[in-house]
Computed example of a mutant assay.
Amino acid sequence: MLQNIFDSHAHYDSRQFGQSDQGLPDRDALLGAILPRAGVRRVMNVGSDYPSSVQSLRLAKTYPFVSCAVGVHPESASDLENGWLEKIEALAGEGEVRAIGEIGLDYHYEPYSREDQLVVFSAQLELAGRLGLPVIVHSRDAVQDTMNLLREYRPRGIVHCFSGSAETAKEVVALGMYVGFTGVVTFKNAKKALKAAEAVPPERLLVETDCPYMAPEPHRGQRCDSSLLPFTIAALAKIKGVGEQKLADLTYRNACKVYGLPDDL
């Protein structure tokens, strides 16, 4: 069994981790016992709006191996009240908060306001820089605008659930950022993701679930959790030509570095 797994991006605050009608374990069972027994040593739980950021902080205060990020996802950019940024900043002062995220741009689903998303993303990039925190960036169908802002603000951090080209991955790395890959790298049609992962140097590579989404094969379409990361690790280890435990150790150290956590391997 693999050890030292760091799930660098999870959403255990999701309602899908409540008591399940299908008999799946809830978040307390997973975080309290199942995941540590499955070799999961650390988890980064990531907010997507103010309520989920509050819940992420609550989970990090409850479970010592969980850290958290706070921020506003682009899909929430047009529904914000006055003072939203100050509320996120107040949460970011807590010691368990290690990043500003999940922030970014998403032009996939209509309707959306490009202007609102750009304003909210920029404000949080500025906040992260001012607080000295890394960012966790979401980018979907918005490569050009995302890269323009990353070039402008030069944040530390991660482009998570990476879906871009190998060329874009190289530019992300050249900006000093890390790249996170999900169970998508196990899918049969994952040629683009595999090429991007091949282009990322090992020292800039992260593994993540984005759970409850993105479950790897052979569990595709099911609710995902961090215990499924060995499938993602195996796929990336094959790409990099290293052993699976070595890849787990490597990505653990990378995540600790970007999030400013002790490298205790």
Rank of each mutant, 00 (worst) to 15 (best):
S163L: 10
A169Y: 07
L150A: 06
E115T: 06
V159N: 00
E171H: 11
A166D: 12
C161R: 05
V143I: 15
P155M: 11
D116Q: 11
S113E: 13
V119I: 15
C161T: 13
L125Y: 02
Y112M: 00
L125H: 04
L118H: 09
L133S: 01
V135R: 02
R140C: 02
S113A: 04
L118T: 11
E115Q: 13
S122M: 09
P134D: 05
S113M: 10
S122T: 14
E126C: 12
S122F: 07
G132A: 05
L133V: 09
Q124I: 03
L118Q: 14
L127N: 04
N148T: 13
S165A: 12
M147H: 11
A174Q: 10
A166V: 14
R130G: 09
Q124K: 07
K170W: 00
I136M: 08
G129A: 04
E171P: 00
V135G: 03
L118D: 05
A166F: 08
Q124G: 06
G164N: 07
V143Y: 15
L118V: 13
I136T: 10
V120E: 00
L127H: 01
R130L: 10
L131R: 12
A169S: 06
E171C: 09
M147P: 09
S163Q: 08
A166H: 02
A142I: 06
L127K: 07
L133Y: 06
A128E: 00
E152A: 15
R130M: 08
P111Y: 03
S122N: 10
